[in-house]
Design a protein around this nucleic acid. Structure first.
Length: 1181
RNA sequence: GCCCAAGUGGUGAAAUGGUAUACACGAAGGACUUAAAAUCCUUUGGCUGCAAAGCCGUGUGGGUUCGAGUCCCACCUUGGGCACCA
């Protein structure tokens, strides 16, 4: 019999790895009757450096977890693959001229070898590789679904440009204004980009987090990133438009979270990029100055912009004034780069009194500051707490800090009854202003005669308290002012002024601790910081704000928003920090974007058929206006009037509409209003023809409740042909699925105040149709409909045509040079015979998109492909997805908290909406393993030279020891430093286990430590049944350990599971074969190689992993004796050994008999006794 | 500045509100050995004490509780994320 060392040296681990592959014990079986478990690792980018010790941490965790659940009878899907597109391979290709494909293949080989050497139980038959055309065919296909759904669009936007990588970067790839990959300072550059409209999913990405079993901190990271805020949009009209444009309704729309402070908006700021600036050019008197500022701002990198954050800059748009809608005041308009073009509306109303940034800006440029919220301080403790039985008297007051004439100290008051420490307080008499009152009060209360006013520290503050000396509740309103004594000229003050307090000098540096009256604390902080900028919405009170006065700001926000909506000046709005996803890369090594640009198709006139409603006509409502507007934009528009408009007949309508329908092509548009929506769906079914876009506005497509029909008949629509209407409306049910199939983009728009159509009637609308509920549009009978027009204009042909699905994958062509062109285009533009192609629609000459997708693309859906990796009909069979999804446990690094996990959820949601995947959220449970640091607690990195290579560790100690040590280091989720010395503890443990099993075969005495004494040794191979205390104790601890290890594995607490097994071994000596077998079973997920080897040594022919997880005997996990703790007043005075289950009376009696306890209880009364069974007795004396 | 974690021996770390420091490393002493390594045994938070025992101890200060590492409040420190987001 060999030793453990010999087993390792003779490639024993490799032997079993090969064996497992041969036996296919890791195979996941589709549709198996066993319960399923999908256990997923974040698949790695196969870098040239190979695996480092951080990778196997998560992989080991999921491997233990997977092996455990297989033994528990689950059908486990545990796959592995390669996220292999990306810059490093491309950069290496540029350097060496090697094909990225070749490099990638080599790296994968290394990674796979390393991963396999750890004995992970992946189902390798499901291995995937994002760079494999068979895989990225479906990445491209999914992109096309996004494109067709209007979620991918082209835009020329200032993007983050890395001058070193010569490529654009997503926001997420920029850290501290620097390129996340190479560290170069990122610049701004305008560039044509493909964008993904992830913002359209912001709300769902946010609310979906609620039900996920993810750590709160990861959820918080995502919430933060999405950055939802609620507020209002407010329109400020522009006051002084030049002659001839007076009638124009040009306005500045701002977004604010604080509409309550609108009365304090004293100026406006536009971002330098705001389109209105250019539009107002003629009106701006200092245009050259403005233009210069804009240019400067545009060229600033993000880093420069944030670096200069503290120092505000800006230029006033001279000659432009905006009108504050609440008071019609004209206020100046500025531009400044502290306002971001990309957030909200790119413009703000500035409220310097209550926003720190505006405050700073206003100070710098000397703009007016109007306070509209007063800090409010109410005494909460007696005796100053306001009393409900007393009258409240409001008065103007003043608070004063009084500085010494020469030293840095202040004269303060110590209040006898209240315990207040304050400055000097007083009321303002009629005819006085606050400064005069302050001067008078200082003279009266302190006796000092020569005082000068220095400055006002705060605006108005409000204090509410009970004034005992007056027996009233006082509501005091006033500022805090700073005064200074001129000299020491002093006169004894009158008694009545000083009876309640005494004056003390306090050093300037002690003031912060001394002052305890809230209004003065606030004042002192304002004095020190030079900022009086109150922002709290819960503790303040509105002032100077007409109808909002005396409200809390949190209440005023809602009231103002309602007021704005009512007056039409604005509306409630929600904003997100999340930006659309910049999806193109000007690089070679990525999935080609499968789009073709055709100039000819772009110029094609798009046709629009608008179908009016009941009793309507083509000349009604917004139809004529819409026709006119669309024609301006090169559309061809049909607005036919139905002959049976008032008494509608389906057949007649279809007959009249058919000729128009015949003119429409695959890209064209149908708009139906009211009953016209109903007609539109019938028309599409009847024509059985593909259509580009369908808009249903105020649509009469649902089932109206009987009550509503009765109302119609009861004279609401006197004399109307309700009967025909109803027959039309309800004639055969609408064929949703047909329309769904034939129309590429479906939009349904309702208004929440539509008097006829309630949103509830739209429940049958398929889930994947874009349903929007608008506000305040009634039944869409206005004569203009700009919002609808906007929606239609978006459908205009862009000239971009999807590569037909049967031509996917669009493969990356081979090139000679991989350098980015540096112009912002990918190297693919130089491959003429690839770039130039035929338009799939018109057959004319067209060009392929040369940009490629970002690395995030392939990883945004890969968990779906593992389920059906070979499928060439679809990305994954829906039934298989239904069987396996969702992922039950997803383990990976926290560095992907916002990038990959947000993108992945987004794609999964889109595929869900399109009906291709069964669940909206892909990852039920997420676990983030903490990073493993180098021994010196720094991050491991090649440049620091502190990287630990798993290969070395495995060569020295074996894979089992490596796996177990990584799990033993600490909780999976913690960040922890690697310590090579620490692994020896695990090695000793494994060796001990090895010897326990194998030594008896050689007739040696099994080695144990601190063993529970047994009456007999050497039980193996056929041990005599050993009776006695020792054996019972072993049984108990074994059963306990089985239970604990199982629970710990399920909760991924591997460190404590391992320590429990160590305890077991430490306590064991001379054990039975049955004991050893059970123990090997619970150890096997952790140390699969060694346990498999020992399992055969115990005479088994089958793999240990075909065994079931051992059951523990509940009756055997209870110790016979427990240690009961006796506490007296919370201090432990004795520990009693008592039989398990000893009753309260017995236990207390025993406790009272204990010598040490007696000492404490002798002659004193026991006030209370607390008994916790099998745990403790607590006496209170 | 804002959001999220976390602070326990010399070290990695354990502890459903109920015996703080399990398990492991390291260290010290011992056994075996000519010797070393390996292995095994003992000790290992601090202070007082021969011992029995006692006091102090989970970042700091308060609080709740018979009882707090654990719950609450305030603060300090470290790590991570966001950051002119109106």
């Amino acid at each position: 019999m060999s030793t453990y060392k010999e087993f390792l040296q003779n490639n024993g681990e490799k032997h079993w790895q090969d064996q497992w592959e041969k036996w296919q014990i890791n195979k996941a079986v589709d549709f198996d009757k066993k319960p399923k478990k999908y256990v997923l690792d974040m698949f790695p980018y196969p870098s040239a450096a190979g695996l480092h010790v951080g990778h196997p941490e998560g992989y080991t965790a999921t491997d233990i977890y997977s092996r455990y659940f297989r033994m528990k009878g689950f059908n486990v899907l545990h796959p592995m693959g390669w996220d292999a597109f990306g810059l490093p391979a491309e950069n290496y290709a540029i350097k060496t001229g090697t094909q990225p494909k070749t490099i990638t293949e080599k790296n994968i080989e290394t990674f796979k070898r390393q991963i396999m050497s750890l004995g992970f139980s992946y189902d390798w038959s499901r291995e995937i590789n994002t760079t494999d055309p068979k895989y990225y065919k479906w990445t491209q296909w999914i992109f096309l679904q996004l494109f067709k759904k209007g979620l991918a669009y082209e835009a020329t936007v200032p993007i983050n440009w890395c001058p070193s990588c010569k490529t654009g970067l997503a926001n997420e790839e920029v850290k501290d204004g620097k390129c996340d990959r190479c560290g170069t300072v990122v610049e701004k550059k305008d560039m044509r980009q493909w964008m993904l409209r992830i913002t359209a999913y912001a709300d769902r990405l946010l609310s979906g987090l609620e039900n996920l079993n993810w750590s709160e901190s990861i959820k918080a990271l995502q919430r933060n990133w999405i950055g939802r805020s609620e507020g209002a949009e407010v329109d400020f009209r522009i006051a002084n438009l030049p002659a001839g444009r007076q009638g124009s309704t040009k306005k500045i729309r701002v977004y604010t979270t604080r509409p309550d402070t609108l009365f304090g908006a004293t100026y406006m700021v536009l971002s330098p990029e705001h389109p209105l600036v250019e539009e107002l050019k003629d009106q701006i008197k200092n245009w050259s100055e403005v233009e210069k500022y804009i240019t400067k701002a545009k060229n600033k990198s993000d880093l420069e912009r944030t670096d200069l954050a503290k120092d505000k800059s800006g230029v006033e748009l001279k000659g432009v004034k905006a009108i504050n809608p609440v008071n019609q005041e004209q206020i100046p308009v500025w531009i400044s780069d502290y306002v971001l073009a990309s957030y909200g509306t790119g413009a703000i109303m500035a409220v310097p009194a209550h926003d720190e940034r505006d405050f700073e800006f206003a100070k710098k440029f000397d703009l007016p500051i109007i306070q509209v919220v007063a800090p409010f301080f109410s005494s909460q403790v007696a005796p100053a707490c306001p009393r409900s039985d007393k009258e409240t008297v409001r008065r103007q007051s003043v608070g004063c800090f009084l500085k010494h004439w020469s030293e840095d100290k202040y004269l303060c008051l110590e209040w006898k009854d209240f315990g207040w420490h304050s400055g000097i307080i007083g009321g303002v008499e009629s005819g006085e202003n606050a400064i005069e009152a302050g001067l008078r009060e200082i003279q009266e209360e302190t006796g000092y005669q020569n005082v000068k006013f220095i400055k006002q520290i705060t605006g108005e503050t409000h204090s509410y308290f009970y004034a005992a000396h007056k027996n009233i509740n006082r509501y005091a309103c006033g500022p805090v002012l700073l005064f200074q004594l001129v000299d020491d000229n002093w006169r004894e003050p009158e008694l009545e002024h000083v009876k309640n307090h005494r004056a003390v000098w306090v050093d300037g540096d002690k003031m912060g601790e001394f002052i305890n009256l809230p209004s003065f604390i606030y004042g002192w902080q304002a004095l020190k910081s030079g900022q009086d900028c109150f922002t709290d919405i819960d503790s303040g009170v509105m002032i100077n704000s007409e109808f909002l006065n005396d409200l809390k700001p949190s209440e005023a926000i809602g009231k103002m928003a309602d007021w704005l909506e009512e007056k039409g000046y604005g509306k409630k709005a929600v904003n997100y920090k999340l930006r659309d996803w910049v999806f193109s890369r000007q690089r070679y090594w990525g999935e080609p974007i499968p789009l073709i640009y055709c100039e000819h198709c772009k110029k094609q006139k798009q046709k629009v058929l608008i179908i009016h409603g009941w009793e309507g006509s083509g000349e009604d409502n917004w139809l004529p206006w819409m026709k006119q507007e669309l024609e301006k934009d090169n559309f061809e528009v049909f607005t036919p009037t139905m002959s049976t408009s008032a008494s509608p007949k389906v057949d007649k309508w279809m007959e009249e509409l058919m000729p128009y329908m015949e003119k429409l092509g695959e890209n064209d548009i149908i708009i139906g209003h009211s009953l016209g929506s109903n007609a539109a769906i019938r028309l599409i079914e009847k024509a059985n023809k593909k259509i580009g876009h369908l808009f249903l506005i105020g649509s009469a497509i649902g089932k109206l409740p009987e009550k509503r029909w009765k109302l119609f008949q009861l004279g609401i629509m006197l004399g109307a042909d309700i009967k025909s209407l109803r027959e039309f409306w309800e004639k055969e049910p609408l064929n949703w699925s047909k329309a769904d199939e034939l129309v590429a983009n479906k939009h349904v728009i309702l208004s929440d105040d539509d008097p006829y159509i309630h949103p509830d009637t739209h429940k049958d609308v398929p889930q994947n149709w874009n349903f929007e509920l608008w506000h305040g549009h009634k039944h869409f009978t206005a004569f203009e409909a700009p919002e609808i027009l906007q929606k239609v204009l978006v459908c205009k042909p862009t000239g971009w045509i999807p590569v037909p699905e049967n031509e996917l994958p669009l493969e990356l062509p081979e090139v000679d040079k991989y350098e980015p062109t540096g112009t912002g285009e990918s190297p693919l533009v130089n491959i003429k015979d690839w770039i130039v192609t035929k338009c799939p629609v018109c057959g004319g000459e067209a060009r392929r998109e040369a940009n490629t997708m970002p690395q995030w693309a392939g990883s945004s859906w890969y968990w779906l492909r593992f389920i059906d990796p070979q499928n060439d009909k679809t990305f994954a069979d829906f039934e298989k997805l239904k069987y396996w999804m969702p992922v039950d446990v997803y383990v990976g690094g926290a560095e992907h908290a916002v990038l990959h996990l947000l993108y992945g959820r987004f794609w999964n949601m889109v595929l869900y909406d399109l009906g291709y995947v069964p669940q909206e959220e892909p990852f039920t449970k997420l676990v983030n393993q903490g990073m493993i640091l180098a021994e010196n607690s720094e991050k491991m990195s090649k440049s620091r030279g502190n990287v630990v290579n798993p290969d070395d560790v495995i060569a020295e100690h074996g894979a089992d020891a490596f796996r177990m040590y990584e799990m033993f280091m600490g909780p999976l989720e913690d960040v922890k430093p690697w310590n090579t010395k620490g692994i020896v503890g695990i090695c000793r443990f494994l060796e001990r286990v090895w010897n326990m099993v194998s030594s008896p075969l050689q007739g040696e005495v099994p080695v144990g430590r601190r063993g529970i004494e047994l009456k007999q040794d050497l039980p193996h191979p056929n041990p005599p049944l050993i009776k006695g205390r020792g054996q019972d104790a072993l049984e108990i601890i074994l059963n306990k350990t089985i239970k604990k290890v199982g629970e710990d594995v399920e909760n991924m607490r591997f460190n404590t599971a391992i320590s429990a097994m160590m305890v077991l071994i430490n306590e064991s000596k001379g054990v039975s074969k049955e004991f050893l077998e059970k123990f090997l079973l619970i150890l096997s997920p952790f140390a699969p190689h060694m346990t498999e080897e020992l399992w055969t040594k115990l005479g088994h022919k089958e793999s240990i992993f075909k065994e079931s997880w051992p059951k523990y005997d509940e009756s055997k996990i209870k110790d016979e004796e427990v240690e009961l703790v006796v506490q007296i007043n919370g201090k432990i005075r004795a520990k009693l050994k008592l039989p398990t289950g000893t009753t309260e009376a017995e236990a207390i009696a025993t406790a009272k008999n204990d010598e040490n306890v007696k000492k404490y209880l002798d002659g004193v009364e026991i006030k209370k006794t607390i008994f916790v069974q099998n745990k403790l007795i607590s006496f209170v004396i």
